[in-house]
Write a protein that binds this DNA or RNA. Sequence first.
DNA 1: CAACAGATTCTCT
DNA 2: GAGAATCTGTTGT
Length: 164
Amino acid sequence: MRQLPPSFFARDATVVAPELLGKAFEAAGLLVRITEVEAYTQDDPASHSFRGRTARNSPMFGPPGHWYVYFVYGMHHCLNVVTGAEGDGQAVLIRAVQGEGLPPGRGTGPGRLTRTLGIDTAWNGRPAVLHDLGEAPPASPIVTPRIGITKAAEWPRRWVSPPT
DNA sequence: CAACAGATTCTCT
DNA sequence: GAGAATCTGTTGT
């Protein structure tokens, strides 16, 4: 099990996102594998970074390979990994994970997975420790439009691991 | 300072 | 398919 180097994250979010499928990280004492992601870049009207840096989105403009966790709808946290070069305002949203010991359905959905894994804003800005389990990314991940947003939702920037 | 939209999920119809 | 729960950042007065 190899830890992903900083150079892995220092590329465009649309390149990093599909490669994150199958990668793993630890939370709540569990090792979970990423199965669904979405890419957000600064030129994306749906991205928090679209209108420039603010106190809330500042981690997106920080060094890549760090977590960006934000709170939405008054009740959900969403987990992202910062990508690109520092100042680019890019991130990849983690939408679903799988893990042994993780009850079925508990890792699906960005809000639900953070609640299940106990992830909150304490993670915000911390270095992201991601592991390569030795398996290649899916040869043909499923690419679809994004979910739950009103701007540019049709952009094909969501990647899902094919069913195992 | 007031208004409002939002990278969601659950529950009920 | 529709509505509630609930709060932060941004924008306008």
